[in-house]
Design a protein around this nucleic acid. Structure first.
Length: 126
RNA sequence: ACUGCAGGCUGUGCUAUCGCGGUGUUUUUAAUAACAACGAGGAAAGUCCGGACAGCACAGGGCAACACACCGGUUAACGGCCGGUCACGCUCCCGGGCGUGGAGAUAGUGCCACAGAAAAUUACCGUCCCGCCGCAAGACGGGAUAAGGGUGAAAAUGUGAGGUAAGAGCUCACAAUCCUGCAAAGCAAUUUACAGGAUGGGUAAACCUUGGGUGCUGAAAUGCUAUGUAUACCCCGAUCUUCUGCCGGCCCGGCGGAAUCCCUGACGGGGUAUCGGGGAGGGUAAGCAGAUAGAUCUGUUCAGCAAUGGGCAGGCCAGAUAAAUGAUAGCGCCAGACAGAAUCCGGCUUACAGGCCUGCAGUAAAA
């Protein structure tokens, strides 16, 4: 996610949940622009309140981004199947530096949880 | 070889797979895809100085504010750097090395804790003289005195002699510091020498004085494009779509008459502009420029003690905009410190595991 407007919209209107050191803000949209592309946009952020050094924040974002990249294709397939777009933001709320194995495990849990969210939304909207 | 000091350099490497950023080439209508090379630092940090660049302001001068202050050089500039000079301190193998500092305290005002009599026209003790009382010791009163005591970070330049009632730079000799003049050396700071004068506590990161200097704001600067309320509103100017009479100080005003244009089937009703400039408000949060070829980098050579500068040859070396360097596996070692570009440079300051190099000194061994 790169657009300031989309991010502001996401944080004001989106839903959220937490998985231990992470907090996820997400919002499903109707995929109208590109029906053959998975409309999955994601951003990452770390609070400078807990990590004052820029190197530490970069490290956390890189590890999280890599853990997301390795596992994201299952979510893309599911979105393509349902013709939905998903905007999401992943915030790191922990206070200690994570390692990659832990980040991979947690991102797996997060993606699984997101896979089940579209059903809920469709039923509630209907 | 080890130790210490000083200075400089470096600061995980390779292979494979997957992935990220802009660029180039090819492909595609385009999106895109494939391939290629490149892709954080010595401090990118703190944002402390100085510039470039941009916008605004700007006759000249003054006031205020701010920082600067031995001399010369260097530079785009600097409070940086280099070289020199003086004072003080530390070290020393006594040649030197290192550190700190440098307009003015003799323009003026203020301040100097505690202690001490007194912190700048100093009299507590002491010393001396006079008066008075007393046999005397001495007490009291008046004066002189900065030699001695004690306090302090600091006490009126130090030593000796003369001098005196006792003393005092009061006088003299030597020494110290400062000022003035002058000679020699040096671009200069300054050094050396001579003559005359003075004896004055410290503090200017207290106010202040002197000198030369500084416009203000920062890339969220700034310029352009697109979208759009919008044929909106207000003001000004020009052209014009009107002509004419009366009222009114004037008018784009009011009343009357005549004519014309547009919309509407018509009565009727409505409209009557265009262009340029400005004001006030709203919307968008997109793109491009700024923005990465430069006080540039590498090598070499010349000038210079050096900082630095010139010449020649070659190179192009991050450019994002929620913001790119990661993951996995293997090998290697001392097991990877401090730490992440955001307009760009020159410095300063601070942080930093380990490794390497140079110089000096010491110790030990060998020749």
């Amino acid at each position: 996610m790169k657009s300031r407007k989309q991010i502001e919209h996401l944080f004001s209107k989106g839903k959220s949940f937490s998985v231990s050191p992470y907090r996820i803000v997400y919002s499903f949209e109707n995929a109208v622009d590109l029906p053959h592309e998975p409309g999955l946009k994601c951003g990452f952020t770390v609070s400078s309140r807990f990590f004052k050094k820029a190197t530490d924040r970069n490290r956390i974002k890189r590890i999280t981004r890599e853990a997301y990249r390795v596992q994201k294709n299952i979510l893309e397939d599911k979105l393509l199947l349902r013709q939905k777009a998903l905007n999401m933001f992943i915030l790191y709320t922990g206070k200690e530096l994570p390692d990659f194995a832990m980040a991979k495990e947690k991102l797996g849990l997060i993606l699984n949880k997101l896979m089940q969210q579209p059903d809920e939304k469709n039923t509630s909207a209907a």
